[in-house]
Amino acid sequence: MHSIYNFVSGPLAWLAFILFIGGCLYRLISLMVLVHRKEKFIYSYMSLKYSLRSIFRWSTPFATENMRRHPALTIVAFAFHICLILTPLFLLAHVTLIEESWNLSWWTLPEGLAEIMTLIVVAACVFFLVRRLVNPEVRYVTSVSDYILLAIVAAPFITGFLVYYQWFGYQTLLILHILSGEVMLVAIPFTRLSHMLFAPLTRAYMGSEFGGVRHARDW
């Protein structure tokens, strides 16, 4: 058990981070190369002002027509993404690990809050799952990969929660938790989770087109 733990928290963690960061860079750079090679004109339409206008507008809850049409989804989606990103970064247990290894540390979330945020992520995943199963327009475009992605995202939070309470099989769960976190990291650049990288770019391009050329709102 100990050797598995050492493996997943050691070499495998390094590998996951290298694949995550390297993969993200690879995806972004190869997209830029593609733009440069075939659609250079895109650069000439990009406008910082309208890119930011669009990104800011779509990062503000209920600032767009479609968000107002789907209030529940809007709340869930915002809460989900905020908690998804902040919880692992500012979790006491994670920061403590980093501190022990590298003597680096930063502000952490109160434990009770982190717990709630974890539950929000899990609950949001359930919401997305139900939405996929129940809404005909979502179900129609859902493939197996969409369920797998949802599971990949939910797994680190479910296992993390169980580890925190040390309910059963602490060692096994901890290993599963680390593993699932690593899977998620690696999945980000190589699956549709890459919208983390690309959404700001597509948003910026559409914002620039609408603002600079079409002189119209894109929300």
Binding site: L31, M32, L34, V35, R37, K38, E39, I42, N66, H70, L73, N135, E137, V138, Y140, V141, T142, S143, D146, R192, S194, H195, F198, A199, L201, T202, Y205
Partner: peptide, 17 residues
Amino acid sequence: SGARLKAYVDTCVHCGL
């Protein structure tokens, strides 16, 4: 086609919105 099509296809999360 180039980067646009690729980014559009890869980014879509099938949300139906």
